[in-house]
Nucleic acid binder design. Structure first.
Lengths: 205, 205
DNA sequence: GTCTATATTTGGATAGAC
DNA sequence: GTCTATCCAAATATAGAC
C-alpha cells in the first residue's frame, strides 16, 4: 500500500526506466536501442541503470512482458450471451480491437511485437498462442453458437473465426504503420465498422 | 553475354556477398547483421567487402531492392478475361500468393520486409504502395467486373478486395512464422484454398 | 542510488602491401 | 581484388568513491 509512495525516488526511477525503455524499444527495437540512450532519456548515468536491472535484456523482458497482458477476452458465459446477439457481438469484438489499435500504450506494444516477432522465438510462440489462438477460440465459440441458433450460415466455426480475425489484424497493422509516420488514418478508421458490415452480410442466413 | 563468365571471380564475389547478406539480413535484420559476419560467411576479409560496396547500407539497399521486384501482377486485359471466370480467378490469385509464400527467396524477402517494416520509412511506403495498393487495384478491378456480370453480389469492390487480401496476408504471415521455427505448416498450407472457398460462398449471388 | 572512471567487446571503415 | 594491420566509435558492463 505505502510501497507506492514510500521511497518514491527508487520506485520512480525504476518505473521511469521502464516507461522510457518501452517507448524506445517500441520505436527502434531491441538491438538499436542502447542503454546509453535509455539512461540519457531517464536522466541518469548508464551505471545507475544497473542498480535496477541486471542488464539490458532484463529491461527488455520486463517491457516485453506487457505485450500480452492486455485483458481482452470475455468469460465464457459472457460469450454465450453475447453470441446470441449475432451482429452486435461482432461489432463489440471489433470495437474492442479498434480501441486497442488506437490506444497509445497498446499501439507501442503492438509495434514492439511486430519489430521483434522474427527476432524472438518466445514472442512468436506467444503471438500464436495468446494473440491468435486465444482470439480464434473466443470467436469460433461465438460463431458456433450463432450457427446453432441459425443466425448465420453453416460452416466450420474455426474457419469463420479465422476469416474474421485476419482482416482485423490487417487493419490494425495498416493503421499502426500509418500512425507511426503520423499519417492520416481517417480513411482506415472506419474500416473496422465496414469490415463487420461486410462480414455479417457474408455469413447471415 | 560473356560478362557472366568472363572474370567469374569478381562477379562471383559480389553475387556471393549479396546472397549471403540476403540470408543474414532476412534472418537477423539490418542492425544485428555485422559486416564481419557477412565477410566471414562469404569467405573474405571485411576490407575486401569494400571493393564491391561503399558501405554496409549500400549492401542492404541492394538486397532490399529485391523485396518488391517480384512480378506478380497480370496485365489489364488478362484481368478482364480472368475476372469473368469468377471463382477460378480467385483461385488463381490465391495460388500465386501461396507460391510466393513457400518460395525460399520470396520467403526471405517477406521476412526482411516484416523485420524492417517499422525501422525503415521507405519500406513502409513501398509496402503500402506496391504490396497493398497494387494488389487492391488488381483485385478490385476483378471484383468490379464480376459484379457487372452478376457473378457476385453488389458491394464496394475496394472493400471486397480488402477483405480478400487481408486474409491472404495473414495466412502468409502465419506460415512464414511457423517455417522460421521449422514448424509444421500442414494445417495452414490448405488455408489458402479454404479461404477462397469460404470467400466465394460469401460473395457469389 | 548515483556518480566518475574504466574495462572490454564489437562493429564499421581505411591504408597500404601484395 | 584480397590481405594484414590498424583506427575509431559505440555499446555493454563493472569498480569504487560519495
Amino acid at each position: 500500500m505505502s510501497e507506492n509512495m514510500a521511497n518514491k525516488k527508487t520506485i520512480g526511477t525504476k518505473q521511469k526506466i521502464l516507461k522510457v525503455s518501452s517507448t524506445l524499444f517500441s520505436e527502434y527495437g531491441y538491438k538499436a536501442t542502447s542503454v546509453r540512450k535509455i539512461a540519457s532519456e531517464v536522466g541518469i548515468r548508464e551505471s545507475a541503470l544497473y542498480n535496477h536491472f541486471k542488464n539490458k535484456e532484463e529491461i527488455f523482458l520486463c517491457v516485453a512482458k506487457e505485450i500480452f497482458t492486455t485483458p481482452f477476452s470475455q468469460n465464457d458465459s459472457d460469450i454465450k450471451e453475447s453470441a446470441l446477439k449475432g451482429k452486435a457481438f461482432l461489432q463489440k469484438f471489433a470495437m474492442q480491437y479498434k480501441l486497442l489499435t488506437f490506444d497509445k500504450n497498446n499501439e507501442n506494444m503492438f509495434r514492439l511485437l511486430m519489430i521483434e516477432l522474427f527476432q524472438n522465438k518466445e514472442l512468436r510462440e506467444q503471438f500464436m498462442n495468446e494473440f491468435h489462438n486465444e482470439n480464434i477460440k473466443v470467436l469460433s465459440e461465438a460463431f458456433f453458437i450463432m450457427m446453432q441458433n441459425s443466425l448465420i450460415r453453416s460452416a466450420d466455426p474455426m474457419m469463420v473465426a479465422y476469416e474474421f480475425l485476419s482482416t482485423l489484424f490487417y487493419i490494425r497493422l495498416q493503421i499502426t504503420l500509418l500512425r507511426f509516420d503520423s499519417g492520416s488514418t481517417t480513411n482506415l478508421s472506419t474500416q473496422f465498422e465496414k469490415h463487420v458490415e461486410f462480414f455479417w452480410e457474408s455469413i447471415r442466413v
